[in-house]
């Protein structure tokens, strides 16, 4: 090894690559450095993922007892708006009357609520178009031509089951995972 390279180097200093033969140990050493550098990336990248305190606050409890039929409240779930709406019988009937074939994202109201609690429509308040907060949950806000929610950014209109009916949004308002812990309390997340 030493002799071959010893003579090769001064003879052909401009040959670049041919100067000395790479042998196993050098490839191994450089590879080990590469493996080490890659392993170092694990903490450097995963530190940007949600920290433990953020993940721990990923459930929210909502008290429903003060929401009258026809009313809705805006609350927070994972630092995003959550719409909790107590549907009237009329609104339920309106939602049920729409044939599924007319819907862009076909879903029945039953699929979007919990059994026995069909009047409680719990959705994210995040327009599925570009993430604005639709109007309609606050007192006196316009609810759009389908009586549900209306997004002022680009005119997406949702019906009383928060399904997309008109405008650019591709999907219904998302229903998060939740469960009824009692008749008047839900745990979201």
């Amino acid at each position: 090894m030493a002799t071959t390279t010893g003579t090769a180097e001064p003879a052909a200093p401009t040959d670049g690559e041919g100067v000395r033969r790479r042998d196993f140990i050098e490839i191994a050493a450089v590879s080990a450095a590469g493996v080490g550098a890659l392993a170092t990336l694990v903490p450097l990248i995963s530190q940007m993922a949600p920290s433990k305190d953020v993940l721990a606050e990923s459930t929210t409890e909502v008290d429903l007892s003060a929401i009258e039929p026809g009313q809705a409240i805006k609350t927070m779930f994972r630092k995003q708006p959550l719409f909790v709406r107590n549907l009237t019988q009329k609104e339920i009937a309106e939602a049920d009357a729409v044939p599924l074939s007319e819907l862009r994202d076909p879903q029945t109201l039953q699929e979007r609520t919990k059994e026995g609690h069909e009047n409680w429509l719990i959705t994210m308040g995040v327009c599925t178009h570009l993430g604005c907060v639709p109007l309609g949950a606050g007192e006196g806000e316009i609810r759009g031509e389908f009586g549900g929610y209306f997004c002022p950014c680009h005119g997406s209109a949702y019906d009383t089951a928060a399904r997309i009916r008109k405008g650019p949004a591709p999907k219904n308002l998302e229903v998060p995972q939740y469960e009824f812990t009692s008749d008047t309390k839900i745990l979201v997340g």
Partner: peptide
């Protein structure tokens, strides 16, 4: 890895012109 680096270094220097 440092052991490897030691042998690699020896190898390189053994080929000193």
């Amino acid at each position: 890895a440092t052991g490897l680096a030691w042998f690699a270094k020896k190898n390189v220097w053994a080929a000193k012109p």
